[in-house]
Amino acid sequence: SEEELEEFAKEVLRRGITIIVNGIRITEVEIFVKVLREILEKR
């Protein structure tokens, strides 16, 4: 749901943790923004 997305976004921003994806360091915020864009483009 959109509320869950908002909560996830807030949690990500609070933690600001960097994770490893395919050997490249990407912040969770960047991943969230990318996923959010993909979701919005599909609408």
Rank of each mutant, 00 (worst) to 15 (best):
K10D: 01
A9Q: 02
K10G: 03
A9T: 02
K10I: 08
V21L: 14
F8P: 02
I17Q: 07
T18E: 12
I26T: 04
K10S: 04
R25H: 10
E3V: 10
F8A: 02
L5D: 03
K34A: 09
V33G: 01
E7F: 08
E3W: 15
R43V: 11
V33A: 02
N22T: 05
A9N: 01
V35T: 05
V12F: 11
G23K: 04
T27N: 08
I20Y: 08
V35A: 06
G23D: 03
V35C: 06
V35F: 14
E7S: 09
E3D: 11
R43H: 10
E4D: 09
I19D: 00
L40G: 02
R43D: 05
G23S: 05
E6C: 15
V12Y: 08
T18S: 09
E28D: 13
I20A: 04
E7C: 14
G23Q: 04
V33F: 07
V29W: 15
L36P: 01
E7M: 10
K42G: 10
I31S: 10
K42A: 11
A9H: 02
E4V: 10
I17V: 14
L5A: 02
I24L: 13
E38S: 09
I26W: 05
I26Y: 04
T27C: 08
N22M: 11
E4H: 09
R43A: 10
N22P: 03
R15M: 06
G23F: 14
L13V: 01
E30Y: 12
R25M: 08
K42R: 12
I20S: 05
K42E: 08
R15T: 05
V12H: 02
E2W: 15
E28S: 15
I24R: 06
S1A: 09
G16F: 15
E11H: 08
E6T: 13
S1V: 10
F8Y: 09
F8M: 03
I17D: 06
I31N: 06
I39G: 04
I39M: 10
E41K: 12
R25V: 10
R25A: 08
E6D: 04
E28A: 11
R15Q: 05
K10L: 10
E7R: 13
E6G: 04
V29G: 01
I31L: 09
I17M: 12
R37F: 05
R14N: 06
E7I: 08
E2V: 12
V33Q: 01
E4W: 15
K42F: 13
F32M: 10
R43T: 08
E11Y: 06
I24M: 09
K42W: 11
A9Y: 06
